[in-house]
Design a protein around this nucleic acid. Structure first.
Length: 918
RNA sequence: GCCUUGGUGGUGGAAUUGGUAGACACGCGGGACUUAAAAUCCCGUGGGCAGCAAUGUCCGUGCGGGUUCAAGUCCCGCCCGAGGUACCA
């Protein structure tokens, strides 16, 4: 009976399945623990070895927590709506639902082979109407809510209407799209449509004309986090700015809470920092600039700017408006009109990518002037695309001496530069640092920059020439997609105004269409559906993934997203494992969504994910062969300098430790059947490179292949052994043999030379117990700190040491088996059975280590002289410093290093080291 | 540019948080078993110098300084890689 992993693993899967060992129910007698993986998008390529990395880690932790007596919720599902399935559908006509279902089946098959302890009875799929019913439901709740800054929470729209009827909106401090004001009478005199339009200004899910990232190639808009460098994340197509009427979510209303919440959760600093930057809180002031009389009428509104450097206002020598700014109309003078329009037109035509690519200074003068409220001087108003319409007020006061962008602009258009900080040199570049003493700044002179900022803000507020303001970079999420394969909006239109579908009518199911393309008139694909009376857009990918962790708590509930009983028991995700790529997308939206549901009283936790661990990405490691040009001869990597060769990617699955399997290579492709090889040391050595894992580079390693060759337990251990979980690393099968060897050795501890299962009932020796308990202690500490690579090492050391002892004692092996079960569940289960247990190892108890067994009675002290370790000495554990000092000096070897001198000092660190200073 | 990370043998990576650098594994070299191979096991393996040898000795954690009895670890100044972000006022 050799270690036959294929037989063992199949047997275990069946056993677990038949006994439903991973099924979990609410159990008030046990503490809960919720371990969640970011659910995968089931792509057509199937699972590669990179996917399971995080799943293995979370599975180890889940199994560990189970052994520790926790009631562990560890579910899995699929993020099944998305672009690739739809793109495939457009190309082939195959319905995305069919391909998605096939892909899911394939994923499931692959996942099952790896021995995960998921409770599949709780599986969710975002494209399932029973699931997206609750996505639609949440949307309607947002449609029916507004955000109150004073209460710091979302409230029902009905409440707002009451206030409007009673006193208008003057006293409200609420999140809105546009600042407007009206009285109760004005509200009452509004028509139904006007009222709906007004309410739209406050809804958390609202419709608005916004600048969106439009991707013509995909025919849809994209969220900011779906655009990378001006290209779409999926497909890499150009993206341009366009004004469109779109559904949006008022995420920005939650900016402050999203920021504050970060302080309470156990995420890495790097990830929290990324979110903080994305939210981008900046404290500053809005300052009102009057337009100079000579070219302004009385009604012209003040131009409001946002600045974090109110202290520099004495150096504001001009103003700049964004080309899309609403101030453009009131400032442009008749004689400048043509030029200004030409400029605005030109900027509109440039895509974001073009703007990033060539960063030339461009701009145009409006012809108008504004009055600097601090200096009372007139300053020109310009327009330039370096000012963004979407941030602050879309207008700035330019301080060329202390802002590099303003500086470049001033130099280019020859505008005055006034330095405001003592001793700074602005002849070559601006002085952007917030340090130094103010000069040329009236009443701010002599103050330090931070003092001046505070004083200037105070002044602005006092004189009512502006107000103190906190600005956020975080923008509302665009929530419409002009796509087929997504959740339909539960919205219908009457007189062009949107109205919610009744809750009883949910879900609004995705209709059938003849093609998955936009209609001839340019409407989204849903425009093709017969008798479709609802919104034609669908929801974006992040809609379905924003609250899926709640649905797992109560996945079959048809009355509620999650029952309050289930929610009160499972509360929040204790451990969330996934990639960093979701830092500014899913992990912001989810937190927002959860906070909204929290405001509604539907969930009990404000933050959804208590602890978050990011697994690193697994990159591909490509291999190359080198063909001599014009021949079918291939040269080993060490000899390529001597030939003129072409580098060719070779399938990594026929390369082992960078050595090509020549026979398999000849069979790989027909054209290589007759290949000749120039070998070195009798082998063909391949070149290699680390690249993204992809089909075209022939470096995709499928977990199935590894499982067939080595077994799931080896794969699990190896992926953990590869290095720290958080670190990105190339996949490399070098070394997998070592891990497999460990499992075989482990197996042999229980088997005699005739391959029969054999354990002795003898009592374990103190040394054997010590080995075991040392391992228990180390492995437990490593699991707790997610240091799975060192835990695997500890197992290897343990087995080596027990092997030396020829230890096959039942007591030792029983505990060791349980200890190993989170890492290599199949082999552990099999041995557990062989040891005579009639229950599964899954339900065993994690062994407790006994500190008494680890106590040493002597310790080997390294003895150093001037910090250099020279030799070691044995001491009893209870030796005191004085006796150690004495013994060290009495040691004949010491004489050599003290060179006859008396030591100046002797440092004894108990249990650590002795250092003699000469 | 800014933020976050990381830099240790031929390779992946350890190092109890300031206390024996290189655990564990791969690879490589040597040996045992075998007709042979596979499998398995044992020994060696950072570099230099000295020695038949046990061993001794110096140098070594990206670079240059510093603090300390003691630095891979702390401080200051650089260099390089990875990820995020960027006319955010």
């Amino acid at each position: 009976m050799e270690y036959n992993f294929l037989r063992i693993e199949e047997k275990c899967r069946k056993l677990w399945e038949e006994n439903g060992v991973y099924k979990v129910e609410i159990d008030p007698d046990k503490p809960k623990y919720y371990v969640l993986d970011m659910f995968p998008y089931p792509s057509g390529a199937g699972l590669h070895v990179g996917h399971p990395l995080g799943y293995i880690a979370s599975d180890i932790y889940s199994r560990y927590k189970r052994l520790k007596g926790f009631n562990v919720l560890h579910p899995m599902g699929y993020d099944a709506f998305g672009l690739p399935a739809e793109q495939y559908a457009i190309q082939t006509g195959q319905h995305p639902e069919i391909t998605t279902r096939q892909n899911i089946a394939r994923y499931r098959e692959q996942l099952d082979k790896l021995g995960f302890s998921f409770d599949w009875s709780r599986e969710v799929r975002t494209c399932d109407p029973e699931y997206y019913k609750w996505t639609q439901w949440a949307f309607l709740q947002m449609f029916d809510s507004y955000y109150c800054y004073d209460a710091r929470q979302a409230r029902p729209i009905a409440e707002l209407i009451e206030v409007f009827e009673a006193e208008g909106n003057a006293r409200l401090n609420i999140a809105c799209t546009e600042e407007i004001s009206f009285t109760a009478d004005e509200w009452k005199s509004k028509s139904e449509i006007e009222r709906q339009e007004t309410l739209m200004n406050y809804r958390i899910a609202y419709l608005a004309d916004t600048m969106v990232n439009w991707c013509p190639a995909l025919g849809t808009v994209l969220a900011n986090d779906e655009v990378k460098d001006g290209l779409s994340e999926r497909g890499g197509y150009p993206v341009e700015q366009r004004k469109m009427r779109q559904w949006c979510l008022r995420v920005s209303a939650y900016a402050e809470r999203l920021l504050k919440g970060l302080d309470e959760i156990d995420w890495t600093d790097a990830l929290k920092e990324t979110q903080r930057n994305w939210i981008g809180r900046s404290e500053g002031a809005e300052i009102y600039f009057k337009q100079a009389k000579k070219n302004a009428s009385e009604e012209n509104a003040d131009i409001v700017v946002f600045t974090t450097r109110a202290d520099t206002i004495f150096g504001a020598t001009f103003m700049v408006l964004a080309p899309e700014s609403e101030y453009v109309d009131q400032t442009v003078t008749t004689d400048r009109k043509a030029e200004v329009e030409a400029y605005i037109d030109a900027t509109k035509r440039r895509t974001e990518r073009e703007r990033i690519a060539d960063r030339k200074v461009t701009g145009v003068f409006t012809g108008s002037y504004a009055i600097n409220p601090f200096t009372d001087t007139e300053i020109p108003i310009w327009i330039s695309d370096y000012v963004l319409a979407g941030y602050g007020t879309g207008a700035i006061m330019a301080v060329p001496a202390h802002d590099s962008r303003d500086y470049a602009f001033a130099k280019h258009f020859d505008l005055p530069i006034v330095p405001l900080i003592e001793g700074c040199d602005v002849s070559e570049e601006s002085f952007d640092a917030k340090e130094g003493i103010m000069v040329n700044s009236g009443f701010l002179n002599g103050l330090t920059v931070p003092q001046a900022i505070a004083k200037a803000k105070e002044y602005v507020a006092e004189k009512e020439i502006g107000r103190i303001k906190v600005n956020y970079r975080l923008r509302d999420a665009i929530f419409s997609r002009q796509r087929y394969w997504g959740e339909p909006f539960p919205i219908y239109y009457k007189d062009e105004m949107p109205y919610p579908v009744a809750l009883n009518d949910l879900p609004i199911e995705l209709p059938e269409v003849d093609k998955f393309l936009p209609t001839e008139t340019g409407e989204p694909p849903l425009g093709r559906a017969k008798n479709w009376k609802y919104e034609l857009n669908t929801m974006p990918g992040f809609a379905g993934s924003s609250a899926y962790y709640l649905r797992y708590m109560d996945p079959h509930n048809s009355n509620e997203l999650v029952s309050s009983e289930a929610n009160k028991y499972w509360r929040d995700v204790d451990l969330y494992v996934g990639g960093t790529e979701h830092a500014t997308g899913h992990l912001i939206y989810s937190r927002f969504w959860n906070k909204f549901l929290y405001d509604l009283g539907k969930v009990v936790c404000d933050e959804p994910f208590r602890k978050l661990v990011n697994q690193g990405m697994i990159q591909g490691r490509s291999n190359f062969v080198y063909r001599v040009k014009g021949t079918n001869t291939f040269v080993s990597h060490g000899l390529i300098d001597k030939y003129d060769t072409t580098e060719i990617h070779v399938d990594v699955n026929i390369v082992h430790n960078d050595v090509l399997d020549v026979k398999q290579f000849r069979n790989w492709r027909p054209e290589y059947e007759t290949a000749e090889f120039i070998l070195e040391d009798g082998e063909y050595k391949c070149g290699w490179a680390v690249e993204k894992m992809s089909k075209s580079m022939h470096n995709v390693v499928n977990p199935d292949d590894i499982v067939v060759t080595y077994g799931a337990d080896t794969l699990r251990l190896y992926e953990m052994f590869l290095g720290p979980l958080e670190q990105s690393k190339p996949w490399d099968t070098k070394g997998i043999d070592g891990v497999h060897r460990f499992l075989r050795k482990f197996w042999r501890l229980f088997h005699n030379d005739e391959h029969e299962f054999y354990v002795s009932d003898e009592e374990a020796s103190p040394l054997e117990l010590k080995i075991l308990h040392k391992t228990i202690k180390k492995v437990e500490a490593d699991i707790e700190s997610f240091s799975f690579n060192t835990a695997v090492s500890a197992f290897m050391i343990c087995v080596n040491e027990l092997g030396e002892q020829k230890c096959n004692k039942r007591a030792i092996l029983q505990e060791l088996t349980v200890l190993l079960s989170p890492f290599a569940p199949h082999i552990a289960e099999e041995l557990w059975g062989l040891l005579g247990s009639d229950t599964s190892v899954v339900t065993a108890e994690f062994p407790k280590y006994d500190p008494a067994l680890l106590v040493e009675n002597s310790f080997e002290y390294p003895v150093s002289f001037n910090g250099k370790m020279r030799f070691k000495m044995e001491f009893p554990m209870d030796a005191d410093s004085a006796s150690i000092e004495k013994a060290v000096l009495a040691n004949p070897q010491s004489k050599k290093y003290t060179e006859g001198k008396d030591p100046k000092k002797i440092i004894v660190v108990k249990g650590k080291i002795v250092n003699v200073v000469i």
